[in-house]
C-alpha cells in the first residue's frame, strides 16, 4: 500500500498516521483502511452500555475525501441497528441548527466516538435516522454479533477486545469524547442512495427533512454504484432464520412499526433487488430502448404474418 500513494500528499500522510494509531482493536472501537484503498476504511464500534444498543457490535464503512482532513469523512453503517439507516452516508456536517463544523484537528477516532455517543440520541425524523422501539433495537443489538463483513472477514464477536469490568476510558478517548459532543450528525445520501430515493420522494412531506445532495464528483462516492445500492437490501435482511449465512436476500418479517417505517421506502414485492433494477436502468438505458424497438419490429412481423395467414388484404400502407 505504501508504494501506491504519494506520501507527500497531506491526506495520505495523515491517514497513514491514523491507521498506525488505530491499528490495535480497543474495547470500544476499531478501524482500519481496506487493503487496497487507503481512502476507504471499515470500522467496528460497540454499542454504548446502559442503552438499547448494549451488547451490540456494529460494523460500517468510512469514506475519506481526497481533501481529508480539510473535509470531513463520511460514515456508512452496514449492520442493522435501529438508529441509523443501513448503507446511507452519515455526514459530519454543517447544519443551520448546529453551527459546529468539522475541524481538521479531529480524526477518525473522534468520528467513531461521536458515532457511539450519538447512537442513544433521538433520530427525530432526520433522513438516515431511524427511531425504532427499544425492543427492536435490543433485538438488533443481539443479532449484530452474527454479522460478518464480506470484505473484512472478521466475525463481529472477535472484532473488538472483550469488555472488562474495570475498563477505564483512555486519556485519548476522554478528550475525543469531549470533542465528539460538538459534532452534529446529519445524513447525506450518496449518489446511489439518491437513485434509490427517487421512488420515495413523493412520500416525503417537508423539504427540510431530506438529505439530498447533488451527485458528487468524488471518486469514492461515485465508486461502484451497483455495489453500494445493492448492499443495504442485503445487509438489512433478517438473519434470524439462518445465522450462519446472513447474506442471502430474503423477505424479512417486519414488526408493524417497522413495516410502517419501511413500507414507503420499498416496493411491496420486489421482483428482483431494487439496487440491481436501478443500476440496470441507468446503465442499460440504451439496451432497453433497443429491446423495445426489436420487440415492436417482431410484433409488426407477427401481426403481418397473422394477416397473411388469414389471407386478409392490407387496405393501408405500412
Amino acid at each position: 500500500m505504501e508504494s501506491k500513494y504519494n506520501r507527500k500528499s497531506p491526506a495520505v500522510k495523515r491517514l497513514m498516521k491514523e491507521a498506525a494509531e488505530l491499528r490495535d482493536p480497543t474495547e470500544h472501537y476499531h478501524a482500519q483502511p481496506l487493503e487496497d484503498n487507503l481512502f476507504e476504511w471499515h470500522f467496528t464500534v460497540r454499542g454504548p452500555p446502559d442503552s438499547d444498543f448494549d451488547g451490540g457490535i456494529y460494523h460500517g464503512r468510512i469514506v475519506l475525501p481526497p481533501e481529508y482532513p480539510m473535509k470531513p469523512p463520511s460514515i456508512i453503517l452496514l449492520t442493522p441497528n435501529g438508529r441509523f439507516e443501513v448503507g446511507k452516508k452519515i455526514c459530519l456536517s454543517i447544519s443551520g441548527h448546529h453551527p459546529e463544523t468539522w475541524q481538521p484537528s479531529w480524526s477518525i477516532r473522534t468520528a467513531l466516538i461521536a458515532i457511539i455517543g450519538f447512537m442513544p440520541t433521538r433520530g427525530e425524523g432526520a433522513i438516515g435516522s431511524l427511531d425504532y422501539t427499544p425492543e427492536e433495537r435490543k433485538m438488533l443489538a443481539k443479532k449484530s454479533q452474527d454479522y460478518c463483513c464480506e470484505s473484512c472477514g472478521i466475525p463481529m464477536k472477535a472484532a473488538l477486545l472483550p469488555l472488562t469490568s474495570n475498563s477505564l476510558p483512555s486519556e485519548y478517548d476522554r478528550k475525543d469524547k469531549e470533542l465528539a459532543k460538538q459534532i452534529s450528525f446529519k445524513a447525506e445520501s450518496s449518489t446511489s442512495s439518491k437513485s434509490n430515493e427517487m421512488q420515495v420522494l413523493p412520500t416525503i412531506a417537508s423539504p427540510d427533512s431530506t438529505g439530498e445532495t447533488p451527485p458528487t464528483t468524488e471518486n469514492q462516492a461515485a465508486m461502484s454504484v451497483s455495489e453500494q445500492a445493492d448492499f443495504p437490501s442485503r445487509a438489512q435482511t433478517n438473519p434470524s432464520e439462518d445465522t450462519s449465512q446472513p447474506t442471502p436476500p430474503t423477505n424479512r418479517p417486519l414488526s408493524p412499526r417497522q413495516r410502517r417505517a419501511q413500507q414507503p421506502r420499498r416496493p411491496a414485492s420486489p421482483v428482483y433487488p431494487q439496487g440491481q433494477h436501478q443500476a440496470d436502468r441507468t446503465n442499460h438505458l440504451g439496451s432497453a430502448i433497443l429491446i423495445v424497438l426489436l420487440t415492436l419490429a417482431l410484433a409488426a412481423l407477427i401481426f403481418r404474418r397473422v394477416y397473411l395467414a388469414n389471407e386478409y388484404k392490407f387496405d393501408y400502407e405500412l
Binding site: G96, K186, L201, T213, L285, A288, V292
Partner: peptide, 28 residues
C-alpha cells in the same frame, strides 16, 4: 419509448427540488 427516456431526468428534477436547505446552502 419517449416515456422511458424521460424517466430518469424527471427523477433528477425531483431530487433537486427536494434538496435539504443545508445541502443547498452548502452547494451554493
Amino acid at each position: 419509448m419517449a416515456e422511458e427516456q424521460q424517466d430518469p431526468s424527471q427523477g433528477d428534477m425531483e431530487g433537486v427540488n427536494c434538496l435539504a436547505y443545508d445541502e443547498a446552502i452548502m452547494a451554493q
